[in-house]
Simulated assay, not measured.
Amino acid sequence: MSADSAVTVLGLGPMGRALAGTFVAAGVRTTVWNRTPGRDGELVERGALRAASAAEAVAASDLTVVCVVDYDAADAVLRRADVAAALKGRTVANLSADTPARARDAAAWAADHGVRYLDGAIMTPTTTIGTPDGVFLHSGPRDLYDAHLPVLSALGGTHTHLGEDHGRAAAYDVALLDIFWTAMAGCAHALAVARAEGVTPEELAPFAKGIGAILPGAIESMAAGVAAGDFSGADNPITSSASSMRHIVATSEEHGIDAGVMRAAAGQAQRVIGLGYGTDGFTRIAELVAGRLAPAGATAGAGAVQG
């Protein structure tokens, strides 16, 4: 990094500490601040600069990286009068997680207060920060992203600019975590069902990994189908999916295991079938939950179902 490279990091939870530590290791002059005192000790020992207040912290660098639990926490710091005044003419790169609407609201607030603003999302865990495996998504003005990319790149991994709309990074974040947490909920439920049937977690794990290996191809196929409006179920009609899900629900409930998530998924599949799309594939659910699925044979828009 150049000798005058500098960054401020607000928020020293596990991810914030990983970001700040990586900046320090890369030779970036790094100022740190956290609402709860005492989390900066190791970072300061390694060369980070401790700020006495958030306003002092943001005044120390042209770029402030924010990484807190959500935008309520971010707003509680950034929208204080003294901090907003110190930020005027400087750049905030907000890597906290929240909704696309909150990201756009934050950008509007920043513009009203003379603050330059980038939104972003970190799609990988703390252990990837500073390694080639980190994945960072950014949205906002392209020239602002380009100007600060040399410092942000010190975090390692890949950095992708998704467009000028400040909500784009959060939209990707929400959609991708939708996949992740739904899958994790399925894993937790599967372990409970297997154990109830006398199958240990260690016995199930190798086969569960095999199921996981199917998903990349399935995701590509589903994405291509939805994009093209092709919901063919020639290889696996949704009636077959619904039958499989009923077996999971039945086995779960025989053991007193909550099957609410699978019941919801099975209910969506059954609604698709009831609307006359039983020969289509599971991807028809994307149309159902978006409220775009009319009964088969109806005129476009007639009888649309709300997801």
Rank of each mutant, 00 (worst) to 15 (best):
V7P: 04
D98L: 00
V58G: 13
G291P: 06
I122G: 03
P206H: 09
G13V: 08
V193E: 09
R50T: 07
D105S: 14
R116C: 01
R50P: 09
V58H: 15
E45G: 11
A208H: 04
E164M: 10
A218V: 14
L215Q: 02
G38E: 13
T99I: 00
V58I: 14
V69M: 12
E42R: 06
D143E: 15
G134M: 06
A73Q: 05
T239H: 07
V68T: 11
A190T: 15
I248H: 12
R116N: 02
A25S: 09
V28K: 03
T283Q: 00
S53T: 15
E45C: 05
L19T: 00
G114F: 10
A48N: 12
A25H: 01
V77G: 11
M1W: 07
A25M: 03
A103P: 07
A234Q: 13
A86W: 00
L63E: 11
D178I: 05
I238R: 01
A227K: 01
G167L: 04
V44H: 05
V174Y: 04
E56S: 10
P14Y: 08
A234R: 11
E254W: 06
S153A: 15
A106D: 14
V249P: 10
A194P: 13
A76C: 10
P295V: 02
P37M: 06
G281N: 01
G291D: 10
R104K: 12
A242D: 14
A60I: 06
P216F: 06
D82I: 09
R104Q: 14
A228I: 00
T64G: 07
I219Y: 00
D72I: 11
L43R: 00
L63I: 13
T91L: 10
T200K: 07
A76R: 14
L118K: 04
P237D: 03
A97Y: 04
V44C: 11
R104H: 09
K88H: 13
A54W: 10
T128H: 11
L49R: 12
A86H: 00
V92N: 04
T30S: 06
A192H: 12
G89I: 10
T127S: 15
V261P: 03
G38W: 11
T251D: 09
V261S: 06
N94D: 15
G212P: 06
G281F: 02
S153H: 08
A269E: 05
G281K: 00
A60Q: 05
T279D: 10
T299I: 05
A108Y: 05
A205S: 08
A55M: 13
R80Y: 02
S5E: 14
A25F: 03
W33M: 11
A294F: 01
G16I: 12
V66H: 13
G256K: 08
A147M: 08
I214T: 11
T158P: 04
P295H: 04
A208K: 02
N34S: 11
A170D: 14
E42Q: 13
G41Y: 07
Y172S: 09
V272I: 01
L215R: 00
S240D: 05
S243P: 03
V69H: 09
D4P: 04
V83I: 06
D82C: 12
A154P: 02
E56W: 06
P150R: 03
A227M: 03
V199T: 15
L176T: 09
G210F: 01
G167F: 05
I211W: 14
A298K: 11
E164Y: 08
D280E: 09
A169Q: 02
T99Q: 02
V24Q: 01
P141D: 15
L288K: 01
V305E: 10
